[in-house]
Design a protein around this nucleic acid. Structure first.
Lengths: 213, 213
DNA sequence: TGCAAATGTGAGGATTACTCATATTTTGAA
DNA sequence: TTCAAAATATGAGTAATCCTCACATTTGCA
């Protein structure tokens, strides 16, 4: 109940809190832990990632690992958060100055491409992303995140279709956004050629809905 | 390598095979195991389901459990398969004699409603369904299943739009189907009111895409 | 009837996330 | 500088849980 100065990290929402690193030394060690976890997830997936292995590869003891991460999920979430923060900025920028339907089509299409490429290129992001579906706590956090992203889309829609019911636009934006995340997950779990086709099909479907009246 | 007469069950695809029950006695015991697992999943979710608890509740030893199920996932999958088989028949029937656009709209809408109600009512199905996203083997099996279901939709589309590129119709049907599954998962993880709105929005989006051209 | 196949059992092996008592290092105020 | 308190580091040990396996019992059938 007594947050000193540490930012409210999602870690606290998932499990019992841990001390945030305040010294230079420990900050560097935490970085090494995250790097080790990232490498292991890329190699074998987060399920196969062992806490002992993370500690060993980071050159720290298992106890140190648990000093900063309350549990295994917290490490995974910390990695996920980095992508999330980065993405959010990207999304906000892409949709900020959309002025008309054509502009939305352009911006949306580019955004989807960026996401798709990111998923294809980043095994860690892929792994974490599909994992969020199973873990209830992570799922809730991901939902909240998705809502935040969808709001950028809602803002655009409200600008383009001022006469429409705002609540309906919110629902549409949220659904389209979630369908996009699902489409990405789908696209990367089939072969590349089919994945590409599915992404194109999703774009068409989403834009039809977004620009409809 | 020597399949005697047992049907190729998905169990075999997930882990090392186990003997299929051939005597009346063991078939009844397997039923009890599945019933116990189902009840436990409904109560606490499949993650919290303990193999020892399943055995105890079914009134069998832990060894007997593993005699018929190679691992924990196999039990969950066996339960999932029952829903799957049931669903497939339902889908096939609903879409079999769709003759025109209006008929598709009607049938599709009803199908979505049925699924939605099923998800809302069946905690076991819900739990398993969201779990399939994380487990790679289950995910692949679920994808195959989804493809099979999407084929019913493809067949309808080919009938309604004979001039369209068949490959494109297949992609569309598969995407729309997968989006439907994602929409269901989404709808049941938010409050009921928003879930209802999302399902309605999904129907609109899907039908717009299915009937477009 | 008797034997092979099917089925049943549960103590124990193996793995792994996580704890905690204790040791070491850093910080900052006197 | 000094030194006590806070922060950090350690890793053997705990607890939970999946699953195996050697052996016992039951069933089907020639």
């Amino acid at each position: 109940m007594e947050d000193t100065a540490a930012p409210v990290s999602p870690q606290e929402q998932i499990a019992s809190p841990r001390r945030a690193p305040s010294q230079q030394r420990s900050r560097e060690r935490v970085e090494r832990m995250l790097a080790a976890a990232s490498a292991l997830i890329a190699e074998q997936g987060s399920d196969a990632m062992r806490m002992g292995e993370v500690a060993e590869r980071a050159g720290v003891s298992i106890g140190s690992l648990y000093q900063f991460f309350p549990d295994k999920r917290a490490i995974i979430w910390a990695l996920a958060e980095r992508y999330t923060v980065e993405s959010q900025a990207c999304i906000s920028a892409a949709l900020a100055d959309v002025g008309d339907a054509e502009g939305l089509g352009q911006a949306f299409s580019e955004l989807v491409d960026i996401y798709y490429r990111l998923f294809l290129a980043e095994p860690v992001m892929r792994d974490i992303w599909s994992g969020t579906q199973a873990d209830k706590a992570l799922r809730q956090l991901e939902l909240a995140d998705s809502r935040a992203n969808a709001e950028f889309l809602t803002a655009v829609l409200k600008r383009l279709r001022p006469a429409a019911d705002p609540a309906a636009l919110e629902t549409t934006a949220f659904l389209v956004w979630q369908m996009g995340e699902a489409a990405m997950r789908l696209a990367i779990s089939v072969d590349r050629q089919e994945g590409d086709r599915l992404v194109v099909a999703y774009k068409r479907m989403a834009l039809r809905e977004l620009l409809a009246e």
